[in-house]
Design a protein around this nucleic acid. Structure first.
Length: 372
RNA sequence: UGAGGUGUGGCCAAGCGGUAAGGCAUCGGGUUUUGGUCCCGUGAUCCCAGGUUCGAAUCCUGGCACCUCAG
C-alpha cells in the first residue's frame, strides 16, 4: 500500500512511519508547514521550522522521501482566525479539533493523494473502525491515558476512508521504547502541548496582534451583578478559570460565565460552576446518525474521564443531560459522545450550559442573567 | 474633634507577653496535543513614636488614620 505519513517532528508520527515502513509499505513522510511565516510575523524570536526539520531528519533516518506542503493560508483561514474571533466573542475555541478535520485530514490528505498516495497515516493515539455497513468511526485506542479520539470527532466519512492510525493498539510507552530501540532522532523530544501556533501560552497577546484589536477592560461581577473586580479583556478568560481573577475572597473564585455583549466576567464559587446540561450545535455524526435519546458517555475536554449523560435532539442541536453535574463547561469547546465501548458516536460545539436541568432556558453561560 | 471601636503581608483573618496560623489573591513549577481544572511551592515583624519587661503584634503613654453613635 502507498501511504503518506503525516510527520509532525514528534515521536509518535516518527514511530508510525517506521512501523509502516517495516511492514513493507511504500511510505513517504509529509509535513504541513502551518506557521512559519505566522510565527515570524508575531513572534520574531521563535523557531517555527524546528519541527519540520526534525521530521526531515526522521525521514532521512528511515530512508523515505519527505515532502513539505505549505498550508499556511488554509490554516489561517480555517483555524487561526476563527480561533481569534471566538475569543473576541468571549468563547473558548478548540483549534485542534478544527485543525484535524480541516487541515490534517483534509488539505494534507488531499496533498498526499495528489502525490499519488491514497492513504494518510498519523501518530494519533486513536482507533479507526467501520461498521458492517461501511460507516467509519473513530474509537479509543489501546492508549487510554493519552487517548486523542476527542480531537477527531469532526472527521468526515470521506476522509476516514483514507486514514490510518498505526499506533491504535500501542501505548505511549511502547512508542517511546521503539523510538529509542531504533535510535530515531526524535526519541528524546518533549511531548507537544499547548497551542502549536502560539508559543509560551501568550495567547491573549497573540490574539491582539493577529486581529489588531485590543479588547477593553471591564467589570468582574458576582452572580448578583455586583462589581467585585476588573478584568483586562474578555479574551483573557475562560469559563472555569480560577487563576488571574485577582480577587481576594474567603473562597476561590472561578469564571462562571463570560458576558461578551456586556463586556463582563461573571465570577462565582466552585459550586456556581456546576452544570447539569449543555446544548451543543454544529453536530457531527460519527458512528451514529441518530443521537436522540441515547445514553452515552461524554467528554467536554480531551483529558477528562468520560461521564454519563443522555442525549436529546433539540432542533439542529443536541442537549446533553449529565448524570452528575460538571464543572468548567465552556461555550466553544467540543462535547464528544462515546458509547460504553468508547466508540465516538458524534459530537458538537458547546453553545451554552445550564445549571438547572429542568429549565434549559436559563442560560447563564451566554451572559444572560439568570431568569430570576 | 463628645463617646465608643478598629488599625497584622495585595484582600480577609488568627494571635490575649515568649519570639507572626490559615484562606483568598499573586508569582513560579508539575500534570495536559485546545482553554481551563487540579497538585506542589512562594511573601509580612504586626499604623507611627516612646515606655514597661530577660522578652511585646500582644501591656502603658502620646500621635496618626479609618469606622460607628451622638450632637
Amino acid at each position: 500500500m502507498k501511504i503518506a505519513v503525516a510527520m509532525s517532528g514528534g515521536i509518535d508520527s516518527a514511530v508510525s512511519a517506521m512501523i509502516l515502513k517495516n511492514e513493507g509499505h511504500e511510505v513517504i513522510g509529509i509535513s504541513a508547514d502551518l506557521t512559519s511565516s505566522l510565527l515570524a510575523r508575531h513572534f520574531s524570536n521563535s523557531s517555527a521550522t524546528g519541527s519540520i526539520e526534525f521530521a526531515s531528519r526522521v525521514a532521512e533516518t528511515l530512508g523515505i522521501p519527505h515532502h513539505v506542503v505549505n498550508l499556511e493560508d488554509d490554516f489561517l483561514t480555517l483555524v487561526v482566525d476563527p480561533f481569534c474571533r471566538e475569543y473576541l466573542k468571549g468563547r473558548t475555541p478548540n483549534p485542534c479539533v478544527r485543525c484535524d478535520a480541516f487541515i490534517k485530514f483534509d488539505r494534507l490528505l488531499n496533498a498526499a493523494r495528489s502525490l499519488g498516495f491514497d492513504h494518510l497515516a498519523s501518530g494519533h493515539y486513536a482507533a479507526l473502525r467501520h461498521t458492517d455497513e461501511g460507516r467509519y468511526y473513530i474509537a479509543r485506542g489501546a492508549e487510554i491515558a493519552k487517548d486523542q479520539s476527542y480531537f477527531l470527532y469532526m472527521l468526515s466519512q470521506e476522509s476516514m476512508r483514507h486514514i490510518l492510525f498505526p499506533l491504535e493498539s500501542m501505548t505511549k510507552a511502547d512508542s517511546i521504547r521503539m523510538a529509542h530501540e531504533n535510535r530515531l532522532p526524535v526519541a528524546n523530544r518533549p511531548e507537544s502541548q499547548e497551542i502549536c501556533f502560539i508559543p509560551d501560552q501568550r495567547y491573549p497577546e497573540f490574539i491582539e496582534a493577529r486581529t489588531g484589536s485590543t479588547p477593553p477592560p471591564g467589570d468582574i461581577v458576582d452572580l448578583g451583578g455586583r462589581v467585585i473586580g476588573r478584568h483586562g479583556g474578555i479574551h483573557r478568560y475562560t469559563v472555569g478559570q480560577r487563576r488571574r481573577l485577582g480577587i481576594g475572597f474567603p473562597m476561590p473564585l472561578y469564571v462562571v460565565a463570560i458576558d461578551g455583549a456586556g463586556n463582563r466576567i461573571v465570577a462565582g464559587i466552585r459550586e456556581d460552576l456546576e452544570v447539569h446540561a449543555l446544548r451543543a450545535g454544529s453536530i457531527c455524526h460519527m458512528k451514529e446518525t441518530e443521537l436522540d435519546g441515547l445514553d452515552v458517555l461524554v467528554k467536554t475536554r480531551s483529558t477528562q474521564v468520560p461521564v454519563e449523560a443522555r442525549l436529546q435532539q433539540d432542533g439542529d442541536g443536541i442537549i446533553v443531560f449529565f448524570s452528575e453535574p460538571q464543572c468548567g463547561i465552556s461555550p466553544g469547546q467540543a462535547a464528544v459522545f462515546y458509547s460504553s465501548r468508547f466508540e465516538v458516536l458524534g459530537g458538537g460545539t458547546i453553545e451554552s450550559a445550564y445549571a438547572d436541568p429542568e429549565q434549559c432556558g436559563r442560560d447563564i453561560v451566554n451572559g444572560e442573567e439568570p431568569s430570576q
